[in-house]
């Protein structure tokens, strides 16, 4: 049965999560923009925005984390792996588009090796999705087969009521357990009217099947369309950092001569050194080739290899791009 989560009960909910040793992550205003942050009080939460600038992936897959410690001595090197001991992570205010992204991340982090740093955190994560009542021209979830009504990836799906409270529907067992565990913060929902959802208009010229078909043929590699549409890309990688499904990382050793830490840091396929070989050869020599790779990853490699969505249509890459390179304009062109 649906439950009612009143705004006045958020402090109770946060307290209940934090007292059990968990983290409560929610959209919050920081440096003049709304971002996902660990919050301690309801007053820190932003309830009225389109979506957070960053994705919440950083709470499952941190920007930087120590995975091992090493010491160097005359007989060799000792490498001691770190264990990940995650606490429960509650993500409040995910949007239905980005909730879908966790299955894409899981697919890649369990593909040929189980990355426990990710899986153990995700196993203890509860996603409380809030359906969108606002949007902007960068939103395109409906074009990639999702919508504000999609519940895939959410543990609890919430809709805002006219009065500013939330109707909560448990989608998964984890979601049901969460509501039971924090029952004091929830009430039985009576017939409550919810706000109208914002439905982005589907972009007419985009056909995902046609894109997949075109990308499956290698000839497209040399299609001049890539350079024409994407040579303006400056290779900053901001799109990959805010993207909820981008997951590339780099392993780096830091420390002094005789010891230090091995870290796993976010990386980006948009950097010119990403595919630079030791020989000096770079198979993706120009920026438009790196851009083509990211597009391939989203619309060919993910769907083909993992049957998952590489792009959820959240539009973050469009909003954050300093040269306003709009992925939907490329999707439109590749649908031809």
């Amino acid at each position: 049965m649906d439950k009612l989560l009143r705004k006045v009960n958020f402090d109770k909910l946060i307290g209940s999560v934090v007292n059990r040793g968990g983290r409560f992550i929610a959209p919050s205003l920081d440096a003049r923009q709304v971002v996902f942050k660990a919050v301690k009080k309801a007053e820190e939460i932003s309830f009225d925005h389109i979506l957070a600038r960053n994705s919440y992936k950083e709470y499952l897959f941190p920007q930087t984390e120590v995975i091992a410690d090493f010491t160097v001595h005359k007989d060799g090197i000792d490498l001691q792996g770190r264990d990940v001991e995650p606490s429960t992570t509650v993500i409040f205010g995910a949007r239905p588009c980005e909730a879908e992204s966790l299955s894409a991340l899981r697919a890649v982090f369990t593909w040929d090796f189980i990355d426990e740093f990710y899986t153990q955190r995700e196993d203890k994560t509860v996603v409380l999705t809030v359906a969108c009542t606002k949007g902007d021209e960068a939103c395109f979830c409906t074009t990639v087969g999702l919508s504000p009504e999609s519940t895939s990836g959410s543990d609890v799906y919430l809709k805002e009521t006219e009065g500013g409270d939330y109707i909560a529907k448990a989608i998964t067992d984890r979601g049901r357990a969460f509501i039971e565990e924090h029952a004091a913060a929830f009430e039985d929902a009576k017939d409550t009217k919810t706000k109208k959802l914002f439905m982005p208009e589907k972009i007419a010229g985009i056909d995902l099947a046609r894109i997949a078909e075109r990308l499956s043929k290698k000839e497209h590699y040399d299609d001049p369309v890539w350079a024409r549409l994407t040579r303006k890309c400056i290779g900053c990688g901001a799109c990959t950092f805010v993207c909820p499904t981008c997951h590339c990382f780099d392993i780096t050793d830091e420390g002094m001569a005789f010891g230090g830490e091995r870290r796993k840091n976010w990386d980006s396929c948009q950097y010119d050194t990403f595919t630079l070989h030791a020989s000096g050869h770079n198979p993706r020599e120009f920026q438009y080739k790196r851009w083509r790779n990211r597009f391939m990853c989203k619309f060919n490699i993910y769907p083909d290899k993992f049957s998952s969505k590489g792009c959820v249509g959240c539009g973050r890459c469009i909003r954050v791009c300093p040269v306003r390179l709009d992925i939907t304009e490329v999707m439109e062109e590749m649908s031809k």
Binding site: Q63, I234, C236, G237, A238, F241, T252, W266, Y271, T273
Partner: peptide, 25 residues
Amino acid sequence: RCIKCYACRQVCSLCYCERCITEKN
């Protein structure tokens, strides 16, 4: 808050080094 995306460097016309010092490893 820095996320090391290097957007500042990439958008800058005066950051034209082909190999930035941060890439020297």
